[in-house]
């Protein structure tokens, strides 16, 4: 008879739980091991629960590990996870995954909380030669935008589909990509977000002559 052989989760303390905007939290926990920017951790509230995966959103040089998530109504993890307080215990796996950005000119494309791995990479000081496109439905969903603008300046483009202000571009990032006359074909394109975003963006990039092997996607599932 096979025994259950799942990855063991380790307990860590919650350091901070910040509500960034309605339904979106940024939780920081004790860092109990090293990781590479772009990796994920599995997290659960109890050691025997089925954990869920989240991209690490903080830099490798920080003393904590952070994740960024939105509350899924009716979900098993995110509603209670949104209520954890400093000093509470959560259970995490070792960091893993290979969504690691090569040290080459690149365009990063994210929607919503899909910005998390890119935040980690930037905070880890690995943001040379990159351009970041971030799409969101509303203005309050451009998480850490001040910091990102500070780091990337005009190479940080925000696309808002339902609201506008002087710092954002009205409309969809897919329209921006479709209307771009020339996209650099030698760049790497890193995509992170919902599967539908990844699929739509990947199709546009391929139609614009980007070789598929220059497109790397991480999907939230």
């Amino acid at each position: 008879m096979n025994q259950h052989k799942r990855k063991k989760l380790k307990p860590v303390n919650v350091i901070d739980n910040r509500l960034l905007t309605s339904g979106v939290h940024y939780i920081s926990i004790e860092k109990n091991c090293e990781f590479k920017a772009g990796q994920v951790i599995a997290i659960a509230l109890n050691p025997n629960d089925e954990p869920r995966l989240y991209s690490i959103a903080s830099g490798t040089n920080k003393k904590y590990i952070s994740i960024l998530f939105d509350i899924k109504p009716g979900g098993e993890l995110t509603p209670p996870l949104s209520k954890v307080k400093s000093g509470d215990t959560v259970f995490i796996s070792e960091p893993f995954g290979k969504f690691l950005c090569a040290d080459k000119p690149a365009t990063w494309i994210a929607t919503g909380t899909g910005i998390a791995p890119f935040l980690s990479i930037i905070e880890s000081g690995q943001n040379k030669n990159i351009k970041l496109l971030h799409g969101a439905r509303t203005l309050d969903k451009f998480f850490f935008q001040e910091y990102l603008y500070e780091q990337l300046g005009d190479y940080y483009l925000r696309f808002c589909t339902t609201e506008s202000n002087e710092r954002t571009i009205d409309g969809r990032l897919t329209d921006y990509l479709k209307n771009s006359k020339k996209l650099p074909t030698n760049n790497k394109y890193y995509l992170c977000g919902s599967s539908q975003m990844v699929i739509d963006v990947r199709e546009i990039l391929i139609s614009k002559g980007i070789p598929f092997d220059n497109i790397i996607a991480e999907i939230y599932f």
Partner: peptide
């Protein structure tokens, strides 16, 4: 190959074929 599988299948970023094979070896 990891880099190539990533281009074809985004899952490879998280659950690599190598880790999957390691997991299979845990079972009879």
């Amino acid at each position: 190959f990891n880099e190539e599988r990533k281009q074809l299948m985004p899952i490879e970023n998280v659950y690599t074929a190598e880790k999957m094979i390691e997991a299979l070896k845990d079972y009879d």
